[in-house]
C-alpha cells in the first residue's frame, strides 16, 4: 500500500505540474480554462486518493463542491470569453 501511495502522489503531482504549466503558458483564456478544469479534477483525484488510503470520509463534501465548482467556473469563464472576443 505504501508503494501505491508514493506512486500515486508522484503521478498526480506531475499531472498537476503539467496542468499548471498550461494554465501559465496559455496562450488564450480558453486554454487556461481547460487546464484549470483538469487541475480541479486532479485535486479531486488527490483528495479522493488520500481519503481512500486513510479510510475516512471527512473530505467527501469538499469533493462534491469541487466537482461542481470546476463546471460552474468553466462555464462562467467561457461565457465571459465568448462575450469578449466573439
Amino acid at each position: 500500500m505504501t508503494v501505491a501511495v508514493v506512486v500515486v502522489a508522484v503521478l498526480l503531482s506531475a499531472a498537476a505540474a503539467l496542468a499548471l504549466t498550461r494554465v501559465v503558458r496559455g496562450p488564450a483564456l480558453l486554454d487556461r480554462v481547460v487546464a484549470a478544469e483538469v487541475l480541479i479534477s486532479i485535486m479531486i483525484g488527490a483528495l479522493g486518493a488520500e481519503a481512500a488510503v486513510n479510510r475516512h470520509a471527512t473530505t467527501l463534501p469538499i469533493l462534491v463542491v469541487l466537482s461542481t465548482l470546476g463546471f460552474v467556473g468553466s462555464v462562467a469563464l467561457v461565457r465571459f470569453a465568448s462575450g469578449e472576443e466573439a
Binding site: A4, V10, A15, A17, L18, A19, R22, V34
Partner: peptide, 20 residues
C-alpha cells in the same frame, strides 16, 4: 484499491501530458 489508484493517477498524468 491500490491498483485503481495507480491507474487513476496514470490517466491523470496522461491527461496532463496531452494538455502540454
Amino acid at each position: 484499491v491500490g491498483i485503481f489508484l495507480v491507474a487513476g493517477g496514470l490517466l491523470s498524468l496522461v491527461a496532463g501530458i496531452g494538455l502540454i
